[in-house]
Design a protein around this nucleic acid. Structure first.
Lengths: 242, 242
DNA sequence: ACATTATGATTGTCGGACAATGTATTTGTG
DNA sequence: CACAAATACATTGTCCGACAATCATAATGT
């Protein structure tokens, strides 16, 4: 019988360093907040030079698994939804995602999110939504930037209230991607202020009444209204987000 | 009047290197597939040492913006949906996402995805779905692994057919997260093979008829069926994915 | 006891060196 | 001349050593 060799692991050392540390984090040996050894210590433990260790650390750093904490020590981090959303949205933007794709996904997700929210939102979460609505109500007329930020913040608060980190990460990444384009839309839409305010109020009302269908319906209308804004503002839906 | 200084940029050099290159990619100066200079060349251009350049490259590398191409040269990459999905799902797993959160999100997204698919899926995409279904049909009984992979592949093909990279990335990340747990569920569910096969057939039928409501309804049933499997298999929905 | 200073540890950056590897060029041969 | 083989070259991966900057801790002075 012919002996067979396993393929050798020819990955660069810095990749191996990254994988080794990552493995211990994944397996729970290194829990969140744990301090990693110093670079010098890692060198002796792995038997490699500091350059390689440092390059490995950069890989871990960018994937959000470790960060420099107090006293510059390396601490194990567990990626937060907002960070995941940020890197995902950035990657999609770079990957050439278009307004159309983002908006369609938004239109697919948020009505369902509203339906779920109607059955779950805590009083605090509802209060936060009301605060956003009130902030929008009191916004000075013509302040497009403020209107946009309140509009996005409304989505943001709704997503937060769902108490589901996976949903939150996805919805947040959409919020990040839609933010920039929304500015253009609201700039050119008359009555944007009132229309958004009205939609938010109706949605809040439905959420308060725990009326899932109503919440979903109003969210659908709200988004449909935004979509019309895109048409009015002549945003090219095939254009890349940037 | 008191002169005011802007806060100095005290970021480490390797971060600046990363940002500088990233900026040129983002602004379109460096398009996808473009070759970056060699490390030595970057050193002279930035006026820093190779160590710093290399650490900066690691950051870019992990964020999926560059990769080593032919002849080891650095080439600009635009992140693909599958890569975004992979890093996102990994991050969420590390961030402590639970089966419950993933499954709830799945149950929220896929019925809507099916509805959209009914109005859009190309013949090729439908054919791919049929292929998956046929593969599942011909799978030997008791081959849990195969059943799982066909079940996931069905979701995968459906997502691909939507022709929306943002949706695709999100759905794919769910697929990755659900994969492992599905194995346990199907292992312990009697008739899983037939039930999944039946659901796939019904969904395909609805898609062929361009019947959005029917497609959505059957997908909902399909997922509800999987949910029952989770209960039967006594999967703790509050347990972390790992 | 508390503020200040000295000490030490650690990271960030530099410079140079060399082996491994893949590319490009030259050379040899029909 | 065409094509294969050998050579030279360029580039990355890895190592080593050094030092300034920064921050934490210990020592010191009042």
């Amino acid at each position: 019988m012919k002996h067979k060799f396993k393929p050798l692991d020819r990955a660069p050392v810095y990749v191996k360093v990254c994988n080794a540390i990552e493995e211990d984090i994944l397996s729970g040996i290194l829990k969140e907040g744990a301090l990693l050894p110093t670079e010098a210590e890692l060198c002796t433990q792995f038997g490699v030079t500091r350059s390689s260790v440092r390059e490995g650390i950069r890989l871990l750093q960018q994937s959000g698994l470790v960060a420099r904490g107090a006293a510059k020590r390396l601490v194990v981090k567990s990626p937060k939804a907002s960070e995941i959303a940020e890197t995902a949205s950035r990657s999609m933007a770079l990957g050439g995602a278009t307004f159309g794709e983002v908006f369609e996904t938004l239109a697919m997700l948020y009505p369902e999110a509203a339906r779920i929210a109607a059955g779950r939102l805590s009083d605090e979460a509802l209060g936060a939504l009301c605060d956003v609505r009130d902030g929008l109500r009191d916004a000075p007329p013509g302040a497009a930037d403020e209107i946009v930020s309140y509009a996005v913040e409304f989505f943001q608060q709704l997503a937060s209230g769902l108490d589901n980190r996976v949903m939150l990460a996805m919805l947040q990444s959409l919020n990040l991607m839609i933010g920039a384009s929304l500015r253009r839309v609201i700039d050119q839409t008359p009555n944007a202020h009132e229309r958004i305010l009205g939609a938010q109020s109706e949605i809040i009302e439905a959420l308060k009444n725990r009326d899932k269908n109503q919440a979903r319906a109003w969210m659908t209308k709200h988004i449909e209204d935004l979509r019309r804004g895109y048409v009015v503002a002549k945003v090219n839906l095939d254009a890349r987000i940037l």
